[in-house]
Computed example of a mutant assay.
Amino acid sequence: EVFLTYRDNLGWKKLFQMIPIAGMVFGAYINKQAISDIGEVGMMLYRKRRILEKVSQSQQ
């Protein structure tokens, strides 16, 4: 789920990096944004896992 979304967005981002000067600036911004997005997704997946664990424990 996460990989497919990241893969789809990565293609467009890398396309814009091919523009010579603007590509450097755009690439730096995109890389920073990608790291931020990956961190956010990781936190959300961790929270989702913890909630599912608590739900399954309460049902037992």
Rank of each mutant, 00 (worst) to 15 (best):
V25M: 09
Y46P: 00
A34F: 09
F3M: 05
R7Q: 12
K14S: 09
A28K: 05
R7T: 12
M18F: 04
I51H: 06
I19P: 00
E1G: 10
G39F: 06
G39R: 06
V55D: 05
G23Q: 00
K13T: 13
F26D: 08
G23D: 01
V41L: 07
A28Y: 05
Y46T: 10
L4G: 12
Q17L: 01
D37L: 15
K48C: 08
K32P: 01
I35T: 11
D37R: 09
Q60R: 07
L10C: 04
Q57A: 15
Q17Y: 01
F3H: 05
Q57T: 15
K14N: 06
S36F: 10
I35Y: 06
Q59I: 14
V2P: 00
I38V: 11
Q60K: 11
Q33L: 14
V41D: 03
G23Y: 00
Q57V: 15
K48S: 11
Q57E: 15
K14Y: 01
F26T: 09
F16C: 01
S56A: 15
I51D: 08
Q33D: 13
G11W: 02
E40N: 06
D8A: 14
S36I: 11
K13M: 14
D8Q: 07
I19F: 10
Y29Q: 09
S56I: 14
W12F: 12
A22H: 03
G27E: 01
V55F: 09
G42E: 03
V55S: 07
R50W: 07
S56M: 13
I51M: 11
K13D: 02
G42R: 02
R7W: 12
S36R: 08
S58T: 08
S58W: 06
V41P: 00
L4V: 10
E53S: 14
A22P: 00
F3R: 05
G23F: 00
K32A: 15
L10G: 01
D8T: 11
W12R: 07
T5P: 01
E53N: 13
Q57C: 13
F26S: 08
I51R: 12
